[in-house]
């Protein structure tokens, strides 16, 4: 479905706009920023963009997985911050190794997804409400062990004990190391993680039968069920993918910050949802898709980086993101319907 099949029919101008409009817009934006700022079109700047969107992008992949089965996961942001706090707690308070921190977080993410999925398929709670409830639950839960304080070495615990554990170097490596790629110290680990996960999730969604069935569920769950698909199992799977990816994002955030910062990660939910929804407009897909999600995340990154280099004030960022999202949604829904293409 994604551009690898050549249709004989000529595309009308409207269809061309729907299909390539967003990519053209992005290319135009790149050109504009490159001309206006001499530092924009440099490898360092490109990597900076990648790094700024890598965690959002990973979470957005999870959002995409739930959108594919016609679900929605509002709890990803708080799952990520829970992973951030949990990994810090494991290393700083329990004084365990980086590997355990990662393992605990991934299990936590999978569990959150499992509970979300079961609430939705077994308890029949609507997806938005179930994951909203989970979001509140996690936001509250991650504050209880430390009585609402951030976690760092040397902090005093509620029982009066002083923490002695430290973030292990191998954990911080995940957030701070940069691989050499033609230029020394160019590619951060998080960018590599995003690309690897992106390829895996893309392959799963586009190439395997499981991805195919998940799309079928998203389009017509009843028909998929009558065709013998285990709809509930795939829905739960989608939420577990979402939970695990969110916890990966949280781990990378913790590794970058080097402390269990209770206040970070506020924007994760909205940014990643925006990236996944912008992805609808890429190549006229008009449905959740992994390639579009990555492009969507990049688009936001490029826009913010460019505006920052042109000295736009930081407080305009959310406004710009909102505007981009609205434009992308118009591309997806209004234009594609009027063209009679569907």
């Amino acid at each position: 479905m994604q551009g690898n099949e050549t249709k004989k029919a000529r595309l009308t101008p409207m269809e061309l706009v729907i299909k390539y409009g967003f990519l053209v817009l992005m290319a135009g934006l790149l050109l504009f920023f490159s001309l206006s700022s001499e530092f924009f079109a440099t490898p360092r700047s490109a990597v900076f963009i990648f790094q700024s969107v890598s965690i959002t992008g990973i979470l957005a992949l999870g959002v995409t997985a739930t959108l594919v089965v016609d679900g929605f996961d509002l709890s990803i942001g708080s799952t990520a911050t829970s992973a951030l706090m949990l990994s810090s707690y494991v290393m700083v308070v329990w004084e365990m190794s980086a590997m355990w921190a990662v393992v605990f977080c991934l299990i936590m993410g999978a569990l959150v997804g499992l509970v979300n999925g079961l609430l939705i398929v077994k308890m029949k709670v609507p997806d938005l409400l179930a994951t909203l409830g989970m979001m509140f639950l996690l936001v509250g839960l991650q504050r209880i062990p430390t009585e609402g304080r951030s976690i760092s070495t040397g902090m005093v615990m509620p029982d009066g004990r002083v923490t002695e554990g430290v973030f292990s170097p191998s954990f911080l490596y995940l957030g701070r190391h940069k691989f050499d790629f033609f230029i020394e110290n160019l590619i951060p680990v998080s960018v590599v993680v995003l690309l690897v996960l992106g390829v895996i999730v893309w392959g799963f969604m586009e190439l395997t039968r499981h991805g195919r069935l998940m799309y079928a569920i998203g389009s017509n769950a009843r028909a998929a069920e009558l065709a013998g698909t285990n709809v509930n199992r795939y829905k739960v799977l989608a939420y577990m993918i979402s939970g695990v990816l969110a916890s990966v994002g949280g781990i990378l955030l913790a590794a970058r910050l080097g402390r269990g910062d209770i206040a970070s990660g506020n924007n994760l939910l909205l940014d990643s949802v925006a990236a996944a929804l912008i992805g609808f407009a890429v190549l006229g897909a008009a449905k959740p898709n992994v390639f579009g999600t990555i492009i969507g995340a990049l688009f936001i990154g490029i826009l913010l980086q460019g505006l920052t280099m042109m000295n736009a004030p930081y407080y305009t960022q959310d406004f710009v993101k909102g505007a981009v999202l609205v434009v992308a949604l118009v591309f997806t829904f209004a234009l594609s319907k009027r063209g009679g293409a569907h």
Binding site: M1, R209, R212, L213, Y215, A216, S219, N220, R222, A223, A224, L226, A227, G228, T229, K287
Partner: peptide, 21 residues
């Protein structure tokens, strides 16, 4: 429309739906 057709899928994907395995 309600029980069988997967909108957004092409003919091939609709036909092979139960037998992707």
């Amino acid at each position: 429309a309600t029980n069988a057709v997967i909108q957004g899928f092409d003919i091939t994907k609709n036909i092979t739906l139960p037998f992707t395995e």
